[in-house]
């Protein structure tokens, strides 16, 4: 498991270039997503930004890692797929819960940017059990 003798100096040229490109692209996407977290104005806009890093950003870095270790070890090394699968199934759940929680709070506090309950009857979070 722990490959002390490996070093990425042993990578053939093509693999080194491809890994370099993918790592760069992935980290740029993650950075852009996090900048969006700073720059966008409202919470509901900001929620979209980190998805960049969580989807394609992570994807690029995982592919780079898979490629690098597969070539270095000379055998398929694809356990990074686990992170990809895990992240794609959990991020939506976490984001959905967070947006719902924010919606619920905004509705309780009567903020303006939240959809009106009469327009989307029965759709807005927290409405199912509360006739109003």
């Amino acid at each position: 498991m722990i490959d002390i003798d490996l070093t990425f100096k042993d990578l053939p040229a093509w693999a080194a270039y491809v890994t370099a490109l993918f790592v760069f692209l992935g980290s740029s996407l993650a950075l852009i997503g996090s900048i969006g977290l700073l720059r966008l104005k409202s919470f509901y806009e900001r929620v979209h930004a980190p998805t960049l890093g969580a989807t394609l950003g992570t994807g690029f870095i995982l592919v780079a890692s898979m490629l690098c270790f597969s070539v270095l070890r000379g055998r398929l090394s694809v356990h990074e797929i686990l992170i990809a699968v895990f992240l794609t199934t959990t991020t939506p759940v976490a984001m959905m819960l967070l947006v719902r929680a924010a919606l619920y709070r905004d509705r309780v506090e009567n903020n303006r940017e939240v959809p009106e309950s009469n327009k989307y009857k029965g759709v807005v979070s927290g409405q199912q059990n509360r006739p109003d």
């Binding site: 990425f8 370099a20 993650a30």
Partner: peptide, 19 residues
């Protein structure tokens, strides 16, 4: 190739740190 990969990894770590 080694230099390119080394720098790319360094820049990526910098970006992720900024993120």
């Amino acid at each position: 190739p080694f230099l390119v990969l080394d720098w790319s990894l360094f820049i990526a770590q910098l970006f992720l740190g900024l993120a």
